[in-house]
Structure formats: C-alpha cells, structure tokens
Design a protein around this nucleic acid. Structure first.
Lengths: 150, 150
DNA sequence: AGGGGTTAGTTCGTGCCACGAATTTCCCAT
DNA sequence: ATGGGAAATTCGTGGCACGAACTAACCCCT
C-alpha cells in the first residue's frame, strides 16, 4: 500500500515535470498556472494552496512574471494585497500545458479496464478529499461545453 | 481520474517531505537513503533509479555524505566506478525515517475500509509496475522476519 | 483622532537541487 | 597500442524553499 502510493507519486511527478519541461517551464511554475486557471488569487491564498511559505512564493511569482505568464494586479479591497492573474500568454500556455499533462497522466492508466479506472479514481478521490488536499489541479472539463470562463 | 492522481501525488509528496524534514534531511536525501536500504548502488544505477542526471547525483551524494549518512566506496570490479553505501548512522536513520514515513502515508488512507485499501493498493500497484517505476521505496517488511540483509 | 496589534507582501541571506557541457580516468575490443 | 565509450567529477547557471527582519496598510478600540 505505502510503497504503491509513494511510487505512484514518484511516477506522476516525473510525468508532470517532464511535461512542464517541454513547455519551457518548471513543474512549480506549471502548478502555479494550473492553480490560477479558474481565476486570480492573492499571495496568501496561493501560499496555503501550494503549501509554500510567503517568501518562497514571492520568488516563484517573480520568476513566472518575468516569463510573462502571470501578472500582479492591485486588490481593490486592500491596497497592501495583490492579485495574481494569468496574462493572456499565461492563460494560453496553461491551457495547453494542462491538456497535455492530462493526456500523459491519463496514459499512465492505459492498461486498466474502464471499471478499474473508475474504481481507482473514486478511491484516490476519497483519500484526497478526506485529507483536504487543495485543488492544485482541477477536474478536467467533461464533454459538454458549458464554459463561463473568460 | 487525472486530478485524483495529481492531487494524490501532491499529498504524498507533502507528507514525505515533512517526514524528512523532521529527521533533519531533505526529501531527496531521504529518497536516497530508502533506495540504498537493500544494499549499495553505483552512481549510474542510482541515476536511472532516481531519474537524475549524473551531475545532479554527485551533488546529492556529496551533501548526504557530508551529513555522514552515506559513504563512497571503491568498486572492486571497476576502478573508475564507485559504490554508494549507507553508513551505520545512515542505516539507522533510514530505518527510522522509512518506518515513520510508512506510518504517515498509511494514515492517509485511514478512512478507507480494509477492502478498499487492498483494492487501491492493487490498482496503484499495477499502474506502478505497468509503467516500470523504479523501486524508490520498497515494500514494508511483512510480519515474519526472514532478513538476509547485512 | 490616533495608537497598538494584526495582516499582506517583499527583501535578504543561506543552502539545496537539477541540469548541461567539459574533463579525467579507466575499461575494453580491435 | 590505441581509439571509442563508460563512470564520475567539476564548473557555472538558474530555480526552489525557507526563516528572520522589514514595510505598508488595515482594523479596531478607546
């Protein structure tokens, strides 16, 4: 059990990192983009979501901003706070990176039957929610298009 | 499915890293110790097992050696090669770190029934083996003691 | 008003991690 | 013996993560 979880995590990480690399970003920057896909976040929220210290986040956002993928904007409610949002370029890259990463991770379960895949998803899903894992990767869009985004 | 895998990996990683931190090592050094638990490895093997470039490994082994957890020994077969082995201190720490990490990862599945846990282990296990994930974390010792190690 | 405590982010210094390119040493097959 | 390839290390670069110290703004309370 434990070994399966740890090695599974290792595998997913490797795939994630390699996917990121091919898009010219690091895994951490990719994660940041994915978190921001639904909408802007403040630094504080990002810190708790990604499990990073404030000071770690400043640097990550700096580097990602320098790459033109993300933008710091003012928070109308609070002038010390800051809203991090995807730039147009960042949103486009996030979309592509997200899709490609989904494809690759999905392919890891290629040899499972559909039923097994569903079971695995359900079990892992319950572990994830029971442990209150932040949404560092949102559910893919199911078939029907009902986008309100943008 | 994908989201469950990615978030699960995120969760396991966080637990792993926190466990390592409490033993005064980094996640990478902890992983190195775990890989070395069954016996010594050469740099090359370590590289493929951990998925790291040779040059990355030199540094990791340097730092871990500096901490007194690991030792470079000569390879009798090949004088350029090197065998990395746990020191006595490293073996002791590895044992404790491994056990504690197992406890913590296991606790993540606390709310599953035994049957569900078995199912999850089996499914994840088949994904892991189908994708030829190296043994970066070996199976815990089942009850009966049949050690040949050391 | 106007402080005192709190919160949001940044800065700074440190150490770790990962990589590629270049290098050295050695093995081995021809 | 020699030339190709494998095993490691070195070097330089850049990203990542942290804690401690700091600044600016908010909030509340009197």
């Amino acid at each position: 059990m434990v070994a399966a979880l740890v090695r599974g995590a290792f595998l997913v990480n490797a795939v994630y990192a390699e996917s990121a690399r091919e898009f010219g970003i690091t895994a951490q920057q990719g994660q940041l983009l994915c978190v921001l896909m639904p909408g802007p976040y403040g630094m504080g929220e990002l810190g708790t979501t990604l499990g990073l210290a404030k000071s770690s986040l400043t640097g990550l956002v700096d580097r990602t901003e320098r790459n033109g993928l993300v933008r710091r904007g003012p928070d109308p409610r609070d002038s010390r706070a800051v809203r991090i949002a995807l730039t147009r370029k960042g949103a486009a890259l996030a979309e592509r990176f997200y899709a490609e990463t989904c494809r690759r991770v999905e392919r890891l379960t290629a040899e499972l039957t559909d039923a097994d895949r569903d079971t695995l998803a359900a079990l892992l899903g319950s572990v994830v929610t029971a442990n209150k894992v932040p949404v560092v990767f949102h559910e893919p869009d199911p078939g029907i298009e009902v986008r309100a985004t943008n």
